[in-house]
Design a protein around this nucleic acid. Sequence first.
DNA 1: TTCAAAACATACATAGATGTCTACTTTTTA
DNA 2: TAAAAAGTAGACATCTATGTATGTTTTGAA
Lengths: 149, 149
Amino acid sequence: MSLTIKSCYALRGLYELYKLQNEQNQNNEKNYISIFNISENTDIPNEFLAKIFSELKRAGIVDSGRGKFGGFTLAKNPEEVKLSEIVEALEVPLNSYDCVTKGECVNQDTCPADFVWRRVQKAIFDELSKITLKDIIEYGERKGNVSPI
Amino acid sequence: MSLTIKSCYALRGLYELYKLQNEQNQNNEKNYISIFNISENTDIPNEFLAKIFSELKRAGIVDSGRGKFGGFTLAKNPEEVKLSEIVEALEVPLNSYDCVTKGECVNQDTCPADFVWRRVQKAIFDELSKITLKDIIEYGERKGNVSPI
DNA sequence: TTCAAAACATACATAGATGTCTACTTTTTA
DNA sequence: TAAAAAGTAGACATCTATGTATGTTTTGAA
């Protein structure tokens, strides 16, 4: 499990999605937010964000509606989405440094260190499992409330 | 703090250094092992390993002697070397994805997720702090004793 | 004093991951 | 039927980890 800017974009995008949904949702109807709107507010490149959300949909983290007035919506309550899910959905390690990215070792038979990467892998996963999208939202809102002087 | 194949090479290299030192050290004299010898036994590219060991020396993890019969030697007892030291000595995050590699966020003021990367960063460091070079050596020796049929 | 073997220093090459951009297709609503 | 959105595919650019090559300095021994 690697950690790239994709995960960062995903969290910021999901946070923005939540915010826009709540702003516009006066009468509690199901509403979709377009990628364009999210990227506009976050300065995340439009097309890259589209890719990311497409992957998040496949993982069941967001739902989408096509066509006019389509867009994305959160598929679950924020407290039900663990960050480990999000990161796992996005970060697909495919390069050759298996020992560090996958926590697996190419020289299985001789490598005296493979257990290290497995332990690190697990440590990352465990830490990410303790955090939910709700924590992100609360943290972001607290931060947003700090008015700059 | 990123994790690349450098860290992997370092651990395998240090393990090999320890082994060669003990094989050759019949009468407990200080003896140096050359990079050439280590890379020969581990299939780690010679010059790359040289770079890695040079960084390990700067971090005080190995000592070196120049000239003929020079080479490298462990600077401390294996149980005194935490893996967090080794990884920190090698993995210098310099790319632009500060939020994920350095645990710092470029958009400090608005990012609702920077605390996540700090926590992950810490989780990795904490896990690596619990493991020493001695653990690597013991694990490697156990593994080496398993005779393939 | 000379040679060989080693660390040390540095610059260069390259592949592959990563991120960005462009264009096109399909779907849906008004 | 037009507009706005997701979805899809692929080209392109860039960055950086990795590996290579070359040369310099140091040291011990013959």
